[in-house]
Design a protein around this nucleic acid. Structure first.
Lengths: 138, 138
DNA sequence: GTAATTCCTCTAGTCACTAGAGCTTCAAGA
DNA sequence: TCTTGAAGCTCTAGTGACTAGAGGAATTAC
């Protein structure tokens, strides 16, 4: 049996975040001590580690709820879990693609400024005039 | 002179977002018609385009305020503008690096599942057991 | 026994918007 | 000129995933 602080140290999830996850239904409300403090066991630790891991991988709260629900039914087909993961992968790839376009544009903007004053600063001019951009990062 | 709707169509910034930018001080409060509706001119259009462009590039509101402030002083040295842009570039690069680590891990998770039920689904097992992960994406 | 630490609940703030209610103004056609 | 429907106005509240702080109670270490 450990306290919320112990659980926090073991999982790397901050104390208020654990309480928030409980409120959101990602982890079950645990037993309480006589003085009304939360007391956790091994099962809760594993569940929280699962949640933390899924969050680290960028899954949203709703996805995680669905994955937890699924993990409680080991006999069901796992197509749904697969598709949640595949969607997350697609969304990560999209974000990477978008950020790479930004990177290209920012490189051009941030490294081309050889003016000394704002008046001829390439950063400012590029922001003022979208036409100076190489591609359509919008 | 155009209305907020015209401005929205010309810049691609939604009407409530324009009002929000005004509230945040990113664009100046414009003249009003007799009936209290906003009336914009060319200058406001350019300013909003600047803001939109900077937002598209991922700059935060505070950065944009600073860049606008700078662009109003063409005689000052532009080192500050450069450093804002350089910081933004660094932050974009960091995000890309992080997302790539996630991508690698998600690829492993999402493509390795050849089980038929949740019980032996690799997605669920991988989330339960961080030790299955190749690298430290946390 | 006491002092320091940790815990509790509750509210409110973050960022950059977005949605909706309830009302007024504007522009175009009859 | 009248009417109708779109577009405008302000204000409040909601989004996601936390984070911060107030004010007080419980636990733990010495």
């Amino acid at each position: 049996m450990f306290s919320i602080g112990d659980l926090s140290r073991r999982t790397g999830v901050k104390v208020p975040t654990i309480r928030y996850y409980e409120q959101m239904g990602l982890v079950a409300a645990p037993e309480r001590s006589d003085g009304n403090q939360r007391r956790y066991g091994r099962q809760e630790l594993e569940r929280l580690a699962f949640v933390r891991h899924a969050r680290d991988l960028g899954f949203g709260v709703d996805d995680i709820r669905a994955l937890i629900e699924l993990s409680g039914h080991p006999d069901q087909p796992c197509g749904h879990a697969d598709s949640i993961a595949a969607e997350q992968l697609a969304s990560v790839r999209e974000k990477i693609a978008r950020l790479k376009r930004l990177e290209t544009e920012l490189e051009r903007i941030a490294t081309c400024c050889d003016g000394k004053t704002v008046g001829d600063c390439y950063v400012i001019r590029a922001l003022s005039d979208h036409a100076l951009c190489a591609d359509d990062h919008a």
